[in-house]
Each structure stands twice: as C-alpha cells, then as structure tokens.
C-alpha cells in the first residue's frame, strides 16, 4: 500500500510526465517504498495513461524491481565471473541455508532481502557482498554469515525510520 497518496503524482511530475522515463519513475517509487506497491503501479498507469499490463511487464522484466516489501536491510551478493570463480556460489548457499532465505527473497523475520546480482564491477575485491551500500571484500561463507548475524534486527530499524518520519 502507498503510504503517501500523492507520491506517484509527485514522481510523475518530477519527470514532466515523460512516458520514456517510466522506468526511472518506477525506480523512484521503489526507492521511496522499498518495493513497488500494486496500488502505486495502478496509479502510475492511470496518471501516465500507459496500460497497467505494460507497467507490470516492466516490473517483472527488470531484475531490480520488487513487487513485495523487502527486509530491513538490503544484501547484494555479487555473482560475477570472478566472484563466482572465487567461491560466491558457496557463500550464497551458506547464507541461504543459515538464514533460511531464497535467492531474491526476504528472511521470514524481515531482517534482510538477499539479491544475487550479475556483477557489481568491483572484481578486485572478489568475492564481494554489499550490505546497505557498504562493500565487503574477500568474503567467505563464514564472514558473510558473521556480518549478516550482526545486522540490527528489523524492529529497531523500523523504529528509527518511524522516528525520522515524525521529526
């Protein structure tokens, strides 16, 4: 659900209603909401007069979009060639097993979402894991689990966000 009913309108105006910027608009919605809420996409389709089926096609074609809320933290695991050769598949397997999460999914306690990506272009640091924008280099299955276990739990971070909103 959209928390701010005016959000889509604001974003559409930001790009002067240019249909060509549809993907950028969707990225902005996701940046605000953490995912693409269905009502947001409906609203976007109406405002831009672009069929909802096309908006949905875009949302499911591009791998950076998410149709369900993610976790409190964003974990990206690089599966580029170098990271792959240096053991990224083992890290992925270990993390999935330890936190009972599917690649591309979110842990049941909403602690983090795990997104394997093609290549973050930081091959000199392989294997690489990115947590909330912070790069970790030379990651091993054990070090990845350690970093993720130390993440502040979901409730805390929602509280922080809520407080910021009030302020």
């Amino acid at each position: 659900m959209l928390e701010n009913p005016k959000l889509v309108e604001q974003i559409v105006d930001r790009y002067s209603r240019d249909e060509g910027m549809l993907i950028s608009m969707m990225q902005d919605i996701q940046a605000e909401c953490g995912y693409l809420p269905a009502d947001g996409l409906r609203c976007l389709s109406k405002r831009l007069q672009v069929p909802l089926s096309r908006v949905y096609a875009i949302a499911t074609f591009y791998s950076s979009f998410r149709l369900a809320p993610g976790g409190a933290h964003e974990v990206t695991l690089c599966m580029g060639t170098v990271c792959y050769l240096k053991g990224a598949p083992d890290i992925l397997e270990a993390v999935c097993k330890e936190f009972r999460v599917e690649p591309g999914g979110t842990t049941s306690d909403r602690l983090f979402s795990l997104q394997p990506v093609n290549c973050v272009g930081a091959c000199a640091l392989a294997p690489v894991m990115v947590v909330d924008g912070k790069y970790y280099d030379g990651v091993t299955p054990a070090s990845a689990i350690e970093v993720l276990s130390d993440l502040p739990p979901a409730e805390e971070s929602t509280e922080v966000i809520a407080k910021e909103d009030v302020a």
Partner: peptide, 13 residues
C-alpha cells in the same frame, strides 16, 4: 493492445 485497445494482457517476467 493494438486492435482491441484494451491491453488487458501482457508479458510477465
């Protein structure tokens, strides 16, 4: 989309 003008279906994934 183009003949009926409804665009009720599209590709997904």
């Amino acid at each position: 989309e183009h003949l009926i003008g409804q665009a009720a279906i599209g590709f997904a994934g």
